[in-house]
Nucleic acid binder design. Sequence first.
DNA 1: GGAGTGGGTTTACAAGCGTTAAGTTACACC
DNA 2: GGTGTAACTTAACGCTTGTAAACCCACTCC
Lengths: 228, 228
Amino acid sequence: MSAAAHPASASVARVSTPPEGHTRTRNPRGQGDRLRDEIVAAAAAVLDEAGTAEAVTLRAVARRAGISAPSIYRHFPDPPAILLAVAQEAFEMLRHRLAEAAESERGGPTARLQAVCGGYLRFAEEHPSRYRVMFGGVWRADPDRGDSLTEASVLALGAEALEVLAAGLAECVADGTSLSTDVRADATALWLGLHGLAHQRAVAARFPWPEDIETRMVRLLASLDPAR
Amino acid sequence: MSAAAHPASASVARVSTPPEGHTRTRNPRGQGDRLRDEIVAAAAAVLDEAGTAEAVTLRAVARRAGISAPSIYRHFPDPPAILLAVAQEAFEMLRHRLAEAAESERGGPTARLQAVCGGYLRFAEEHPSRYRVMFGGVWRADPDRGDSLTEASVLALGAEALEVLAAGLAECVADGTSLSTDVRADATALWLGLHGLAHQRAVAARFPWPEDIETRMVRLLASLDPAR
DNA sequence: GGAGTGGGTTTACAAGCGTTAAGTTACACC
DNA sequence: GGTGTAACTTAACGCTTGTAAACCCACTCC
């Protein structure tokens, strides 16, 4: 089922060739960890280009990073661990994105909440494959794996995003623009709505969405006063 | 990345052994198409048990169906086509489920809408893997494939579900229990919200959802009068 | 009752995968 | 200036996968 195993449909270009010529020079003594970052970056690149997590194989990542496949074992116990690291990094990007959106918008609580939600959706739009891996991946709780990042910690990372939403919603309530009576629950509902939109967009780009679907969902789920 | 290619983590039981003993007898002359249904059923079974679409390989399906791998070619051009058929069948199940929910609930428009939404969510809960395939699968528009079911037709199938929601919402508006002023757009928003909830549940079962998250989302997105 | 064909099976191939074991090379340190 | 070891590479194994080619076999039809 992997692309590689479909010789007949192999018309698709191989996605993970090394960056052309540029032969790697081994990292100096103390800084072997630098390769770890390169591996994660290579995996993200493979994921983005192929569009599916199945393409992120050990060997594909190695090709992309310009190293040999076994070299990866020094940094990751197995292929899923690489994808986990990619997801972790993406969560950090998202967190940063949301914080930035919240900070830079100064037009009042409602505008701020809309900005945060817009940041969330724009992130998903710009990195659809990564978004799918973050929230669509099934992180099986494999007890016997050395890696630290499990389903639980992925959920924890997602919960951080939820905090930002809850804070924004709370502001709106304090301001009187939101009629929500249960900020926690409504923030969850809001996040789930955003997720539904973001995910479905990341999967089927061309769907006849209403033009104002973003603001509409935020307005409804955040119980924003339509009059304002 | 496929489970099979992970000999080290091959402690997981093989999922697609034939149903034990029961040797197949070839189908009679005119009814070769019967095997097609058996293949789809086998693929669905493999998908349900493995929990991931990657596991639905040509050979795994064949093992499960108790036939040889090449036999599948008589009925499907390639493995993705099998998954497509599974999705198609699942959409039909969903459609039936929603219609049933709408029919059997006689407690007024609001209750009916909630029942339809509940039916949607329960379907996703009962068939999480299939749900992920239906809405999470990336149906690349491969022009040179004989199969008829493409991304477009999957979207069309999904649109049917949307119709049922829109009808339910329209009833609520007519009844005065919904304050929606744009049924079409709000129905889309409602569906996206349901999808977000359904999908995230299908991925991370144990997340600290608010208890009333279902009704809450429906109430908010359908602009239902909270007083009632 | 022989031919033809629908409904499969057997066998085989090439490719890609994860993983192990055994090198190799360059640098830090004594 | 030798030694040890971090940071890799090469080579190879065993496995699963999709797919093509050839084959078999029961049944229908003339």
